[in-house]
């Protein structure tokens, strides 16, 4: 027994090293910009770059748009399937899993052929509609995670009883959806939202091929042209991912505590 525990520790130590060493390496590298001493110059340089601010704001707005569209699309659908169309669940689940099967680059390739400026729906000919197309592409990327999160949330509550109770009290469908169902799956939506944010914020393929000034293409540009700024950006991206995952945990736990007694 003693021996097997030793093996576990060894596995854990190797795993931890694999996880920590690149982070330490990146952090150390990001401090090297001033020769001879460590400094935060690389971070200063990144923050003072207006392209950084612009692209980060753009991607943040994109992420928010993606979350709003995603929630509006997924919550009513998952609710309706749960309530009325149970036999449709396998089909809907299959569709939500498709983005894991079809690589992102293939999806955006299809967009460029189907919605280019000479097509029946020229979405890429105007900036606003290209942005919308980008947001839609992100919704598809986030679909597997968003749907899973919301569906799990809906299964945990009694959708039918809640709906009937609300109907008996005279609520319309909008009231049911927004004031009864939505608040009950808030935790699930939030965790889906943070995961979506983590996926969207640094996304490269879609934004680059649709030619939008997002954070991902900016990262690529900096990576190709600068020495120390990329590692500073990597450290920041890591902190951001960490924050998103941490928030998911915090909200998940808050829900558990509320339901415990």
């Amino acid at each position: 027994m003693k021996q097997s525990r030793l093996g576990s520790w060894i596995a854990l130590i190797i795993g931890t090293l694999y996880f920590v060493v690149p982070l330490a390496g990146t952090f150390e590298f990001s401090l090297r910009m001033r020769s001879g001493e460590y400094s935060f110059d690389a971070y200063r340089s990144v923050f003072s770059d207006s392209a950084f601010q612009d692209s980060f704001v753009f991607s943040t707005l994109m992420a928010l748009a993606t979350i709003v569209i995603g929630v509006l699309l997924v919550v009513p659908t998952a609710y309706w399937v749960q309530l009325r169309l149970r036999k449709l669940r396998p089909l809907i689940e299959f569709v939500t899993l498709l983005p894991l099967v079809i690589p992102a680059i293939v999806i955006v390739f299809g967009y460029l052929r189907l919605y280019n400026s000479s097509s029946f729906l020229p979405m890429t000919s105007e900036i606003w509609s290209t942005n919308l197309l980008l947001a839609f592409s992100y919704v598809t990327l986030a679909l597997p995670y968003m749907y899973r999160a919301v569906d799990t949330g809906l299964r945990a509550i009694d959708v039918r009883t809640l709906t009937e109770a609300a109907e008996n009290l005279g609520a319309g469908w909008a009231t049911i959806l927004f004031r009864v169902i939505l608040p009950n799956v808030r935790t699930a939506i939030l965790s889906g939202a943070f995961l979506t944010f983590a996926i969207v914020i640094g996304e490269f393929t879609m934004a680059s091929l649709l030619n939008r000034p997002a954070f991902g293409p900016y990262l690529q540009l900096v990576g190709a042209n600068r020495a120390y700024e990329p590692s500073a950006l990597a450290v920041m991206a890591f902190v951001l991912t960490w924050a998103c995952m941490g928030l998911i945990n915090v909200f998940g736990r808050a829900k558990q505590i509320k339901h415990a007694p």
């Binding site: 991902g216 590692s231 991206a237």
Partner: peptide, 18 residues
């Protein structure tokens, strides 16, 4: 959860720096 989502460009930067 964090590491499996830490992909894309920042991951490449991290390994170049390491």
């Amino acid at each position: 959860g964090v590491a499996s989502n830490f992909a894309g460009l920042p991951l490449a930067f991290a390994f170049l720096a390491t």
